[in-house]
Protein backbone atom coordinates (compact mmCIF):
# COMPACT_ATOMS: atom_id res chain seq x y z
CA UNK A 1 0.00 0.00 0.00
CA UNK A 2 1.29 3.44 -0.90
CA UNK A 3 0.43 6.84 0.51
CA UNK A 4 -1.91 7.61 -2.40
CA UNK A 5 -3.78 4.34 -1.85
CA UNK A 6 -4.06 5.21 1.81
CA UNK A 7 -5.48 8.65 0.94
CA UNK A 8 -7.96 7.03 -1.44
CA UNK A 9 -9.17 4.60 1.24
CA UNK A 10 -9.63 7.32 3.86
CA UNK A 11 -11.56 9.55 1.42
CA UNK A 12 -13.87 6.68 0.56
CA UNK A 13 -14.74 6.33 4.22
CA UNK A 14 -15.12 10.03 5.00
CA UNK A 15 -17.04 11.31 2.01
CA UNK A 16 -17.66 14.80 3.44
CA UNK A 17 -14.01 15.70 2.79
CA UNK A 18 -12.70 15.93 -0.77
CA UNK A 19 -9.86 13.68 -1.87
CA UNK A 20 -7.75 16.76 -2.55
CA UNK A 21 -8.19 18.01 1.02
CA UNK A 22 -7.58 14.51 2.34
CA UNK A 23 -4.22 14.47 0.59
CA UNK A 24 -3.32 17.75 2.31
CA UNK A 25 -4.36 16.30 5.67
CA UNK A 26 -2.48 13.01 5.31
CA UNK A 27 0.62 14.92 4.21
CA UNK A 28 0.35 17.13 7.30
CA UNK A 29 0.14 14.02 9.51
CA UNK A 30 3.47 12.68 8.23
CA UNK A 31 5.08 16.11 7.93
CA UNK A 32 4.26 16.93 11.55
CA UNK A 33 5.87 13.65 12.57
CA UNK A 34 8.96 14.46 10.50
CA UNK A 35 9.17 17.92 12.09
CA UNK A 36 9.00 16.43 15.58
CA UNK A 37 11.72 13.91 14.76
CA UNK A 38 13.89 16.64 13.23
CA UNK A 39 13.77 18.56 16.48
CA UNK A 40 14.92 15.39 18.23
CA UNK A 41 11.53 14.64 19.74
CA UNK A 42 10.33 11.11 20.35
CA UNK A 43 6.94 10.05 18.93
CA UNK A 44 4.71 7.67 20.78
CA UNK A 45 1.45 6.51 19.26
CA UNK A 46 -0.51 4.21 21.51
CA UNK A 47 -1.43 0.92 19.91
CA UNK A 48 0.90 1.60 17.03
CA UNK A 49 4.45 2.16 18.13
CA UNK A 50 7.15 4.67 18.87
CA UNK A 51 9.83 6.45 16.88
CA UNK A 52 13.07 7.50 18.46
CA UNK A 53 16.20 9.23 17.22
CA UNK A 54 19.49 7.77 18.32
CA UNK A 55 22.87 9.42 17.94
CA UNK A 56 25.66 7.38 16.46
CA UNK A 57 29.16 8.54 17.23
CA UNK A 58 31.61 9.47 14.54
CA UNK A 59 33.88 6.57 13.75
CA UNK A 60 36.59 5.51 11.40
CA UNK A 61 35.62 3.16 8.63
CA UNK A 62 37.45 1.65 5.76
CA UNK A 63 36.67 1.71 2.11
CA UNK A 64 36.20 -2.02 1.54
CA UNK A 65 37.50 -1.76 -2.00
CA UNK A 66 40.69 0.18 -1.46
CA UNK A 67 41.27 -0.33 2.25
CA UNK A 68 41.61 3.43 2.78
CA UNK A 69 40.68 4.81 6.18
CA UNK A 70 37.70 7.12 6.00
CA UNK A 71 36.12 9.10 8.80
CA UNK A 72 32.38 8.64 9.18
CA UNK A 73 30.76 11.66 10.88
CA UNK A 74 28.30 11.26 13.73
CA UNK A 75 24.81 10.59 12.40
CA UNK A 76 21.29 10.50 13.70
CA UNK A 77 19.38 7.31 13.02
CA UNK A 78 15.69 6.66 13.38
CA UNK A 79 14.39 3.64 15.21
CA UNK A 80 10.85 2.32 15.24
CA UNK A 81 9.51 0.00 17.87
CA UNK A 82 6.13 -1.58 17.23
CA UNK A 83 3.62 -1.20 20.04
CA UNK A 84 2.39 -4.21 21.94
CA UNK A 85 -1.02 -4.28 20.29
CA UNK A 86 0.30 -4.01 16.73
CA UNK A 87 3.10 -6.46 17.42
CA UNK A 88 0.56 -9.05 18.47
CA UNK A 89 -1.78 -8.31 15.61
CA UNK A 90 0.98 -8.75 13.03
CA UNK A 91 2.22 -12.03 14.52
CA UNK A 92 -0.44 -14.65 14.07
Amino acid sequence: MTKSELIKLVSEKLTNITKKDMKVIVDIIFDSMIDALKSGERIEIRGFGSFKIKDRDARCGRNPKTGDLVSIPNTKTLYFKAGKELKERVDY
Binding site: M1, T2, K3, L6, L9, V10, K13, L14, I17, M22, I25, V26, I29, F30, M33, I34, I45, G47, F48, L86, R89, V90, Y92
Partner: peptide, 24 residues
Protein backbone atom coordinates in the same frame (compact mmCIF):
# COMPACT_ATOMS: atom_id res chain seq x y z
CA UNK B 1 -9.03 11.08 10.30
CA UNK B 2 -5.84 10.46 12.31
CA UNK B 3 -7.49 7.45 13.93
CA UNK B 4 -8.65 6.13 10.56
CA UNK B 5 -5.24 6.57 8.92
CA UNK B 6 -3.58 4.62 11.75
CA UNK B 7 -6.30 1.98 11.59
CA UNK B 8 -5.90 1.41 7.86
CA UNK B 9 -2.12 1.19 8.21
CA UNK B 10 -2.48 -1.32 11.05
CA UNK B 11 -5.01 -3.47 9.17
CA UNK B 12 -2.83 -3.50 6.05
CA UNK B 13 0.20 -4.60 8.06
CA UNK B 14 -1.88 -7.22 9.82
CA UNK B 15 -2.58 -8.75 6.40
CA UNK B 16 1.15 -8.89 5.84
CA UNK B 17 1.15 -6.14 3.22
CA UNK B 18 3.90 -3.51 3.14
CA UNK B 19 2.92 0.12 3.69
CA UNK B 20 5.05 2.60 1.74
CA UNK B 21 4.85 6.26 2.69
CA UNK B 22 6.98 8.27 0.27
CA UNK B 23 9.20 10.77 2.04
CA UNK B 24 8.74 8.93 5.33
Amino acid sequence: IVEMVLDIVKKTLEEGETVKISGF
